[in-house]
Amino acid sequence: MSVPQKINGVLRKIPSWPIYILGPIPGIWVFWLALQDRLGADPLQALEHSLGERGLQLLVLTLLVTPVRRLTGVSFLKFRRAIGLVAFFYVVAHLLTWIVLDRQLDLADIWREIVKRPYITIGMAGFLAMVPLAVTSNNLSVRKMGAAAWTRLHRLAYVAAVAGAAHYLLLVKSWPTEPIVYALVVVALLMIRAWWAAQRRIARRARRAA
């Protein structure tokens, strides 16, 4: 048995449900710290950024599953749904922090900001792209939609990741390292897929020609 197969054997024995319990803990912890005023001078911003960044990290993690499997043979596929749903939890928490604590439920102001500020428009688009993904992240949906349609729908994850990275890049001054790194990682993960898709097309055409 090869090493990847051995690893997969171990991974198969690990359940994915603890991710749903452990995943949100850092977010709940940071919220607790904010309530205790232990997040420095600007706890609101620290909370907002921490939740948003965690959401983006987890989203990137879900996009890593396929390339890792194709390049190494190690499959984390059984954990992807849980990671994606926890990512959604963080994005929702980030959005709620902005709506409730930052903008204090001033709905007119919130709408103005969404329409007027590209970084918020893009962030909202990313959130909206994740909603159908979260709703259909269950076995029943896969069965009802059929695997092909479900897979197509879940390409919205690419939209969400690009939006998340752009949202971050658009709210900073100058070019600090972190948002650039996220953007590059997201671009790399999409490019590798585009490359594979192109390969598949070429192979299909060759088969048809033969």
Binding site: D42, L44, Q104, E113, R117, Y119
Partner: peptide, 18 residues
């Protein structure tokens, strides 16, 4: 890229109004 109409006073805590 962002509004300058309001500001958050640092140190006023998590629930302070803009």
């Amino acid at each position: 890229r962002w509004s300058q109409a309001t500001e958050r006073r640092v140190g006023s805590g998590l629930f302070a109004r803009r």
